[in-house]
Design a protein around this nucleic acid. Structure first.
Lengths: 214, 214
DNA sequence: ACTATTTTTAACTCATGCGTTCAGATTAGC
DNA sequence: GCTAATCTGAACGCATGAGTTAAAAATAGT
């Protein structure tokens, strides 16, 4: 019985909840499993969170916040000067993709798909908290690169969305919606392909580059 | 009580099942609702399908087959000559996107995301039946266009995946994972943006084209 | 050490819902 | 019209699981 204290029970419950919800889905999860995994009695769960849905919403909010913070931190490392643009985009793409490939990233996505029809307001909240700021940060970086003449971009928001689609678009298929591991070589190839196509479309024409592989 | 015959009971059950599963999700669906919507007694459901999971798998298979047939038919209309390539790609992209935007297309996707962790073999089956052939047909078309000098493509499979990612990648965000309608103008802009970027990356350099808008 | 709050244990209520049973009605095929 | 299959209706058993309750036990703050 670690943490016989008071306050860390809440975080223990949340940690257990994210695991069980991820593996079982919302409806298939029973609260007893969360309580026992957290090393906590069931009424304690209901003391901290009024009901199962409140617990679920809290888990999703926290998970989305963590994911967004990680991706935004990755995007923030994109330098404004165009030095080794392909390499930098690959590096950032890798960070982004690994965040989505993480246990928690996929769980968030699957749970969102599963419950969006029943909890549309939760979806809106997560988009506002995580999706929109993430896209905006990347768009800002790309706009900076375009202003310095390293990229040729009309609409930075569109380009940002397309960068994410190109780099991460094949992940669902590659990992069977996150249920199967992806080899690092396969992953690297997917990221490289996405970055190459992105640069073929948006690289400034002055410095015509010939990508290493398709 | 239409269709008091024997065999159409099965299709009535399947039609009702796809609707209820789509709206409620697997776990939240109760078989009585399917039976009553199909105008059929509950034991009849269990006469045709051994249990709820078998019914679900059948629904998913049928739905995937229908979707794949529609998309493949759309891809098949892509001409091999490069006449109005941008227009043709937009037209085909529109067909593809509308198929995914349909009630049934989104339902299939959401249900797959929701249940893939519990039914991994079903996922594999659907990929084999629908995902792989769809991608292969598009790749074949793109390879044909490349062979005739209208596109510059190293790996047609990669290019096909990237075309789909570029054209359809923003749909989840635009439609809130299929739970909200998308205006036809917004949809047209998304498809046009995707096709433009695809052509900026893959159009043969001989005929340099300047896309109408970003 | 004393008090108030929280946690635990274990049992309980109550609703949902899968899958089954069976007698009786309906239909297809001959 | 007769027979064999299927469909209906309504009820049932049974398991699962959310959320609650109660008193006893442990803990934090003072």
């Amino acid at each position: 019985m670690p943490g016989r204290g008071r306050i860390d029970k809440r975080t223990a419950i949340l940690d257990a909840a994210v695991k069980v919800f991820s593996q079982e889905g919302y409806a298939q999860t029973n609260v007893d499993a969360i309580a026992s995994l957290a090393g906590v009695a069931k009424p304690t769960v209901y003391n901290h969170f009024h009901d199962k849905e409140t617990l679920f919403r809290t888990v999703m909010r926290d998970s989305a916040d963590r994911s967004a913070a990680k991706i935004i931190a990755a995007f923030a490392t994109l330098p404004d000067d165009g030095a080794d643009l392909a390499g930098e985009l690959e590096r950032v793409g890798h960070l982004m993709v690994e965040c989505q490939l993480s246990e928690e990233g996929w769980a968030l996505q699957r749970l969102l798909y599963a419950e969006v029809a029943r909890l549309p307001d939760l979806y809106d909240e997560l988009v506002t908290r995580a999706g929109t700021p993430t896209l905006n940060v990347l768009a800002g970086r790309l706009a900076g690169l375009a202003n310095r003449g390293h990229l040729e971009i009309d609409d930075p928001l569109v380009a940002a969305g397309q960068f994410m689609a190109l780099v991460a678009g094949n992940l669902p298929a590659l990992s069977a919606l996150g249920t199967r591991p992806v080899g690092p070589d396969v992953l690297a190839a997917a990221v490289r392909d996405g970055v190459n196509t992105f640069l073929r479309a948006f690289a400034a024409p002055a410095r015509r580059r010939s990508p290493r592989r398709s």
